[in-house]
């Protein structure tokens, strides 16, 4: 009985060590390479914030509000900023269906070329709702990693998608806090 207990204890410690090492490995090893293409799903204003963050992180990035598959030329990562802006869509002369079609083409091309996708949700609570949620549900499952400002994930909507699709997930308090995980995510 004592032997079984001891074996179980060793096994438990072994598992903890393995899991911990794995987690450390995941968080320590970068998932993405440069250069990166930044675009939005929903024509939101946060795309500019993503660009400022990339600049501050010292990343070689290109911003394109209306990115198409040909913009993936020479790119090694796509950063997709999630969240629908009615104002942004209106100003661009797009409706949700057209915007989804555009992003879909980019994501499909990226999949073909094995270019990984990093999703950001920076708009908080204001960038949730039926339109935004439709875009999040459509494109987040293709991501390798998601970095999310907490107020946009109050009921765990984004967490659940990440768990279901095994996507590395980082939640931060505010936009400026995205900088550290963003830096760490890139080689």
């Amino acid at each position: 009985m004592k032997k079984i207990t001891l074996a179980a204890l060793f096994l438990f410690i072994f598992l903890i060590v393995v899991i911990f090492a794995q987690e450390r490995k995941e968080s320590a090893s970068p998932l993405f390479e440069q250069p990166l293409l930044i675009t939005s799903a929903g024509q939101n204003a946060e795309i500019l914030m993503a660009s400022v963050l990339a600049k501050r992180a010292g990343l070689d990035s290109k911003l394109s509000k209306f990115a198409s598959p040909k913009d993936l030329e020479n790119m090694k990562t796509i950063v997709l900023v999630l969240g629908a802006s009615s104002k942004g869509l209106g100003a661009a002369g797009l409706d949700l269906a057209k915007e989804k079609e555009r992003v879909n083409l980019v994501v499909e091309e990226a999949q073909k070329k094995n270019i990984p996708l990093l999703c950001l949700h920076l708009g908080g609570e204001a960038r949730r709702g039926p339109l935004s949620d439709e875009l999040i549900s459509a494109f987040l499952p293709f991501a390798k990693m998601a970095i999310v400002v907490k107020s946009g994930n109050k009921e765990g909507f984004i967490t659940k998608i990440c768990e279901k699709h095994n996507i590395a997930f980082v939640e931060v308090e505010k936009t400026a806090d995205v900088l550290t995980p963003l830096k760490e995510a890139f080689k």
């Binding site: 204003a45 946060e46 500019l48 914030m49 400022v52 501050r56 802006s85 104002k87 708009g123 908080g124 204001a126 960038r127 400002v149 107020s151 505010k174 936009t175 400026a176």
Partner: peptide, 27 residues
């Protein structure tokens, strides 16, 4: 503040008081 981010950062710059360390203010 978030909606108008592009205009603010383009015209007033990252250091303006109308942004919080270069980003929009959170509630």
């Amino acid at each position: 503040n978030k909606d108008q981010y592009e205009k603010i950062i383009t015209n007033a710059g990252e250091g303006t008081c109308y942004l919080n360390e270069g980003f929009p203010y959170e509630p």
